[in-house]
Structures are given as structure tokens and as C-alpha cells.
Amino acid sequence: MFEYCPAIAEQVKIALGDESLSISLQDRLQWFSCYFTTKKHLSIFRAAGVVMLILAFTVPVSLLLGFMGALGKASRWPIISQICSIYVIMVRGIPDIIFFLFVPLTIEIGIEFFLHKAIYCRDVVEPFFNGINLQPCPDAAIIPTQFNRIVLAIVAYGIVFGSFAANIIDGALKAVPFGQRETGAAFGLTRFQVFRDIHMPQMWRFALPGFSNLWLILIKATPLLFLLGIQDIIYYADLLGKVATRRYSTYPHGDWKLWYFLALGVFYLLLTMGSQLVFSRLERRFNQGMSINNASSGRV
């Protein structure tokens, strides 16, 4: 990255091998400035950006699914309302990580099944469903790229956190006093107008503490991306923290994994801290002008 890097790396490398040589503080600082700007380190910073990007995409998806779930639950058609009720309580009974593993694989297999049946393997005799085993023909088998994996992860996260969000929205919609809606109807507003102008604006106030909680849970669920085979910050921390020997590495060091993971911990701590600050401000704003002063402090 910097011009002095090759020289300083070489110098420190020699000093590490020779006990009689000492490394000055300035050299150390320079060495670190080089170390943290190697190609691999830039990719860990990029991975942190990817985490943020996934967060940014997951929120609208899960809000949309959450609204669909919560509104569907109140639907007049029993089939829709039942499906949505199951969706709303789904994540309470089943660990989210199961969905994170299940949903991407299911989508992948769905695509493979389509390729198998419709395009590549029409004359293959062996069935796709072979007892417990699933076998797409070799042409139809796909290996997801990093980008595909990230998209699949966003879908999986969206479904899981949509379920959480549906739970919150469902509760918040019920928390708006019925008299408010009744008044709207008395003024001759249609059902949709009542929902848009009276019910929903008031719902946000009740939903906000839940959403703030959910956002924190979402942030803390992002390390699970690592378990889906995505090269995220944990992947790179694990990789970069490993012992780098003098023989094979320009920047040799011992086992620094602990430091890397502590840094990740601090990264997440700052993220949650910042979020909490933002949400406490939002909460104050949403409660402005409400007759109940401390709507949020009553929570246990």
C-alpha cells in the first residue's frame, strides 16, 4: 500500500529472526500501517461492508413480509389467516439457524429440479427423488457463487426476521385503541382509509420498542452468515489471525486469532451501541405529543 512497506517488512522480518536486533517504535507503527493495508486486510474491511449491505437489504424484505404476515393473519379468508398465523409464531418454536440452513438449500434444489426436469436432463432415466437421496443429473447440479450465497442469505434472513416483525406488527396493531378506528369509521372513512390514516400511523409508536429489539437481534445474527459459507468478517478474522510463519509470509506474526475476534466483538459492540442511541432518539420523537409520557419506560 505505502511506498515504505516492502523495506519495513523485510527489516522487521530480519529483526524477528535475530534476537540481537530490536525494532523501534516508529518501525513497529509503520509495520502495522502496512500490515493492516495488505490485500487480505482490505477484503476483511470489504466483508464488513457486505455485512452492512446484507443488513440494509434484509430490513425492507422482512418489513414487507412482516406486514404481509400481520395483515394476512387478520384476513377474512381462513386459509390465508391460518397460514399467516403459523408464519407469525414460526420462529418462536424453531431456531432461526435452521431456517438459515434450510431456505437457501431449498431454493437451490428448487432451481436444480427445474433445470433437471425442464432443460438439461430430459432423457436421464434416474429419477430426481431417489428414495431419501436427491440426485440432479450432473448438468443440472449448481454450485452457488459467493454472490448467489449472499442473495440466498438475504432471502433466508428476510423470511426469519419477517416472522419476528410480523409478530411485533401484529401486537402493535392490536395495541391501538379500538375507539380510534371506530371514530374513523364514524366519520365515514373507508376501511383502507382508516388503516392508512389512523391505524398505521399510531401503530409505529407501539412497534418501535419491538423493532429496536429486532434490529439488535438482526445485527447479532449476522455472524451466522459464516455458517452459510459466506466469506464474511469471521471467515477473514479466522484466516488472518492464523499463525503466519517467516518462511511463507511477508508479515509474519504469531497466533493473533484472539485479537481479531476481540476486534470483531468491539465492532459489533459499537454497532449495537450506535443503534441503541438512534432508537432511543426515535422513540422520543414518536412519543412526542402523546398524553402518555413514558410509553416506553413502563416495559419491564
Binding site: 447479532k220 449476522t222 459464516f226 469471521i234 484472539l258 475476534f261 466483538g265 459489533y268
Partner: peptide
């Protein structure tokens, strides 16, 4: 309390393991 509530469990597992290992 703040530290444990503010960091993901997966990272706590990693740190825990590395501390125990060291």
C-alpha cells in the same frame, strides 16, 4: 452485562474457545 448483550453469541464462542485454548 452490556458486553455480553452487545456482542453476537457466535463471536463469544470463538473468543471463549481461544481463551480456553490459550
Amino acid at each position: 452485562i452490556y458486553t455480553f448483550r452487545g456482542t453476537p453469541l457466535l463471536i463469544q464462542f470463538f473468543i471463549g474457545y481461544l481463551i480456553f485454548a490459550s
